[in-house]
Every structure is written in C-alpha cells, then in structure tokens.
C-alpha cells in the first residue's frame, strides 16, 4: 500500500512540474507586459524598463522560470498592485472559500449522482429511468453561470429564500465573515449540476452492467435478497464511478470561477474575475497555479483511494 502511494506520487511530480512550466509560460511568453500593471497608463519607456529590471523580466526565460519557481516554492507569488496585498495572502483566503464551495458541490454532485444513478439502474427502462437520463443530458448542457442566474431569480428574487445581497464579494472590500449556509447550499447546487449529470448516468451504466455479470447470477442463485445483492454490485461498481468523479472535481473547481462571480462568493473565482478586468496578471497566474495543483493532488488522492478499494488495481500496481 505504502509503495503504491510512493509510486503514484512520484508519477505526479513531472505533471506538477509541467503545470508550473505552463503557468509560467502563459504569463511570460504571451503578450501583456506585467510591468505595465505596476505603472500608470502614460508611464515612460524608462520607467517601464526600470520596473522590468527590478522584476527580473529581462533575464533569459529559463533563469526567470527557476527564479519564479524558487519564489513559488517558498510561498511568494508576488504582489498584487491592484489589491495592494501579497498574492499568496489573497489566494490562501480565497482558496478556503472555493474549497468550501467545491466540497459542497462535490457532495451534492457525487452523492446525488450515485443515488440517482442507482435508482435509475434499479428502475431500468421505466419512467424514472428516462426522467433521470433526460435530466442528465440537459444538465450537461446548462452553463453553470446560467443556472446560477436562474437560481438567483427563483430563490432570491421570486421566493425570497436567499438574502438578495449575498455574502460580501471581493469588490466590497475583504470579506469579513464566512459565507452563510444558505449560500453554500445554493452555490453548491449550482456547481453540482454538471457533476450530477455525469456521475448519474455513469453510476447507472456501471450498475446495470454489473447486474449482468456472472457473479451476480451466482449470488441470486444462492438466494441472496435484492438488497444484499445490491451491496455486492455496489462494491464492484464503485471504482469506475470514482474515476469519472475524480475528473469531475476539476470541473467543479473550474466552474467555480464562473459561479462565484454571480453569487459574489469571495473565492478564487471572483478574485480572478476582478483581476482579469484589472489586468492584475500575477493574481491570475497564482490562482491558475493553485487550482491546477489542487486538481492534480485530488486526482492523486482519487487514484490511491481507488486502488485501496479495488483489489484488482492494487495487485496490478503492486
């Protein structure tokens, strides 16, 4: 088990390094001078050159990368001239809020998806099954930001369940309090839809397929009750479901950027949104890095967790 964790972690390291290279290149090679952000619009070329030199922007690219990577590893992601704070400070605070949102979405999406999928599988071919598969198809096609707006219209404007102001966003100054539970619910639901739409049919398919397996016939022949058979089927079907779910968590994190903007949720998404309009590129860079790293780590955890559950995989890797 331990060697498996070591191996998988070792495999993730080159990916992590690759991620840092891409994030670095995105912000340096592509047009847009980071030095400009520190200065006013009408700064003279000399002023720009001075700032460039102080930021080390004139060094050769590999050197810049090593320098940047060193800073990043020590937790220094630069300074945001727009927010007048350290980028790492901003991100640390925002990441917690985004993680909360993503976790809520994950719970809604995965638990709900597996439950719906199982239900549909047990009611295979009947109306309930069709309804579930129709909703999963449409769920995939709904832009999460559109759903968030619809939810605001329904729950806030029409039903009045949610306070219209919402939690304080970044543009209202640094958030003072933790987001309120109703908002966690609403946000989580909005973010969960795509996950629900993928996990649901995925779980349904796995369970239906497993029910067709020979070992299930044997269990039935032994006279096991339907519920006990379902337990066995669930055990065998959970592993592939986990795989697709792991990928969905990345989408949750990505989708959070858009949802947060609408719900004014003080997470990485709204931070990025305001940073884009302010051309505050270091914040965008840091946020991209943090989310991508989280994604890689989550996939690693899913991988290891899956191998722990599934003895076939454990043997294959060991």
């Amino acid at each position: 088990m331990f060697s498996l964790i070591v191996r998988r972690t070792a495999m993730a390291v080159p990916i992590l390094l690759g991620v840092t290279v891409i994030v670095f290149l995105l912000m340096t090679v592509l047009p847009g001078d980071p030095a400009q952000a520190f200065l006013s619009e009408d700064a003279s070329p000399e002023e720009i050159a001075a700032v460039r030199a102080s930021l080390g922007l004139d060094d050769p690219l590999p050197l810049q990368y090593v320098h940047w990577l060193g800073n990043t590893l020590t937790g220094d992601l630069g300074w945001s001239p727009y927010r007048r704070r350290d980028v790492s400070d901003l991100l640390a605070q925002a990441w917690l809020n985004t993680a909360l949102l993503a976790a809520a979405s994950a719970v809604f999406g995965l638990v709900g998806g597996v439950a719906l999928g199982t239900y549909a599988a047990l009611r295979r071919g009947r109306l309930a099954d069709r309804v579930v598969s129709f909703f999963s198809l449409t769920g995939l096609s709904v832009p999460s930001f559109f759903l968030a707006i619809v939810m605001l219209i329904v729950f806030s404007a029409t039903l009045g369940w949610l306070p219209s102001a919402g939690p304080r966003g970044w543009d209202d100054g640094p958030p003072s309090s933790f987001p309120a539970p109703p908002w966690v619910m609403a946000d989580g639901l909005a973010g969960a839809l795509a996950t629900l739409a993928i996990t649901g049919p995925g779980a349904r398919g796995e369970i239906v397929e497993t029910y067709g397996a020979d070992f299930v016939q044997t269990l039935r022949a032994k006279g096991l009750s339907g519920g006990r058979v379902l337990v066995h089927v669930g055990k065998s079907a959970i592993s592939p479901v986990l795989t697709t779910s792991g990928l969905q968590i990345g989408n949750l994190l990505g989708g959070a950027v858009l949802i947060e903007t609408i719900f004014r949720w003080p997470g990485i998404g709204s931070l990025v949104y305001s940073a884009i309009s302010a051309r505050d590129l270091l914040v965008v860079q840091g946020a991209t890095l943090v989310i991508a790293l989280s994604f890689v780590v989550i996939n690693l955890l899913v991988d290891v967790g899956q191998a722990t559950i599934d003895p076939r995989l454990r043997r294959a890797v060991a």
């Binding site: 991620v19 047009p31 847009g32 990345g250 590129l281 860079q285 996939n299």
Partner: peptide, 18 residues
Amino acid sequence: MLYAFPAILLAIAIGASL
C-alpha cells in the same frame, strides 16, 4: 500536463494572458 488544468480554468488563463 495541459490536461492537468480544469478546462474552463485553462481557457480563462490563456484568455487572460492574451
């Protein structure tokens, strides 16, 4: 390595730089 980024996030990061 490109796949290690959530799709929307990568698009946003590229879009933001360009």
